[in-house]
Design a protein around this nucleic acid. Structure first.
Lengths: 337, 337
DNA sequence: GTTTTATCTGAAAACGTTTACGACAATCTT
DNA sequence: AAGATTGTCGTAAACGTTTTCAGATAAAAC
């Protein structure tokens, strides 16, 4: 269990531990002979450098904190996957924290990461209030927000153009002949959802459609939310031909309700989602949706963060990605009468 | 950006930094008056303890390394979620590494975690060969394997009783009247899958059924694997009434193929999966399956690991969880003729 | 043959903590 | 009242590295 240190090697090699350090760190001011000899001894003794000690003197840990609201969520885990990959390729490792969508816990975790001396933090915040809450700590560690539009706020973030996402979604449904599109929203304290709702509204306006929002204040899981909302909706008499769900998870709930109510999708009503989580591609689900380029977002977030770490002078930068329409089988053209 | 240290506080409070350390660490050998005064100053100055420095002297980091083959996988991300939670509750944080199912990368990541001085490692290995490969390092850091049966191997692990899982699955299908059950396997270098196949075989033997394995050596994603296998299978003429998929992902692929081939599930053929990933609960999927108690497995793994960290004398321990049958809508009784 | 230069090595400080040890005063014994 | 005990605080060493500075040796230049 006792780990071998630089000093142990020094004793065996009969040199000072400074020399050993130089041999291992690839410094130039050391004889090639001694270097090889020391390297060999190090290998023989099974030496691995102590990153903790190294971090202490270097004043950098080569660690990135990844703080998400729930890793057990297809969207976040996909982000996490790509963040890990990008970070690793750049020589950084990940410290993972869950906030469970709880803002107190998010603050707690953030402080913890600061204490752990991470070089930077990538944050998928649990809501729009995260910014205010975390504001006091924000200039302790370079931070990049992901997926949450902070609009004109003075902090780095990368996100998708949510407004445009719903906008092109409505346009697509319109092009299929739909003239009455209901929006199943999620009234969360999140600018993301505010912008999506707004994009929907603006598109309707531009196309001379009457916007119709369905929502409730009752909050639970998104999928449950979509389910209960849709159940009630299908029971009533409404004039509409398509549903735009503010998130794929909501669409999943709607799908369930539709099945129970005998509503066929897409034969009776078209359904469009947002996010393109991996679930949606399943053949049995086969949901048309608006894609968030998660891979891109993750790698851009990492690059942006590293950039920010290197140039402390930089205040912030924003990057807004393009959403893309993914056509699968849940939307159908309205039959011409 | 300059972080405030214990010495900065000491200067302001006009005491030695030792005293500050004592005040913050809740040591008893300090006056209550000075403690309060120092605590207040610390708060005012925005002090957060440097965990790196602390780790160096304490010779423990309070970090657990979580090494999975892919965090972007419903099973793993669920494990990760619960591991994070359990660990946090016990005062540990997580370092996350992905091996991408690649054994070289797994070794790389493991060594990296060792260098980072994590107190322990929870490993969801990419295959049966992981053990041999990692063996040289295994007594550097307490390690617990998750989800991979290592059988009589001398290393700690927690897993589900895979043999029993398929066994009770066959029994269930038998009880529904099925007498001809095909097993869609995954010939991976994993004891997990070996045991599942064996459990299926043994159950068939016990019930006087003829086991029938479908598999191919062609490896790709499990879902793709299930799809191609099923496509071919459905095209042929076979005498069977139920399919047992070695994993839910395989079942997902089968579902897709069934849809394309006009095979109705469960009307024409019953389908049973294994793992109970969150996908499977979706109403449109609604897959009956064998559940791995992931929450339990994760928290047990953490407890087991902490136990192992505390008592270096302990060599290893094994924990095998009970699989449970989850009945949904993909299996149907065979009509009595 | 002496000085300069280049090359290699070591001593020591630093990073921010914790902790063993000792010093000193105040309080408690008998 | 003298010694023993207790409570509070400071000094210094330690954790395992990197890095600065200076020293030593050998080769090159004059």
């Amino acid at each position: 269990m006792k780990r071998v240190t630089i000093k142990d090697i020094a004793k065996v090699a009969n040199v000072s531990y400074t020399t050993v350090s130089r041999a291992l760190s690839g410094s130039s001011e050391i004889g090639e002979g001694t270097r090889q000899r020391i390297l060999q001894i190090g290998k023989d003794m099974g030496y691995t450098a102590n990153a903790v000690a190294r971090s202490l003197v270097a004043k950098e840990t080569k660690l990135i904190g990844l703080l998400v609201s729930s890793i057990n969520n297809p969207f976040m885990s996909e982000i996490a996957y790509h963040v890990e990959e990008s970070a690793r390729k750049k020589g950084y490792n990940l410290m993972l924290c869950n906030s469970s969508g709880n803002i107190e816990q998010e603050e707690e975790a953030y402080k913890l990461l600061v204490g752990r001396q991470v070089d930077g933090i990538i944050l998928v915040p649990c809501g729009a209030h995260s910014y205010e809450r975390l504001h006091p700590y924000l200039d302790t560690v370079p931070t990049v927000f992901v997926s949450e539009n902070l609009r004109d706020i003075q902090e780095s973030y990368v996100t998708v153009d949510n407004h445009r996402g719903t906008y092109i979604g409505v346009e697509y449904l319109y092009s299929l002949g739909h003239r009455s599109i209901v929006y199943f929203a999620r009234r969360l304290a999140s600018t993301t959802h505010q912008l999506r709702a707004q994009g929907y509204g603006d598109a309707c306006k531009a196309l001379h459609l009457k916007p119709q929002y369905v929502d409730s204040h009752f909050a639970s899981s998104s999928i449950q939310h979509g389910y209960t909302l849709a159940l009630e909706w299908f029971r009533g008499k409404h004039n509409y031909s398509a549903i735009f769900a503010a998130a794929d998870t909501i669409a999943l709930g709607i799908l369930q309700a539709a099945e129970e109510c005998g509503v066929r999708i897409p034969e009776d009503v078209s359904l469009l989602g947002f996010d393109n989580i991996s679930f949606s591609a399943l053949p049995k689900i086969n949901l048309s949706t608006i894609e968030q380029p998660k891979h891109m977002m993750a790698s851009v977030a990492v690059e942006m963060l590293i950039e920010k770490m290197k140039t402390p002078a930089m205040r912030y930068s924003h990057k807004i990605m393009n959403p893309e329409l993914v056509i699968r089988g849940s939307c159908k053209a309205v039959p011409q009468i």
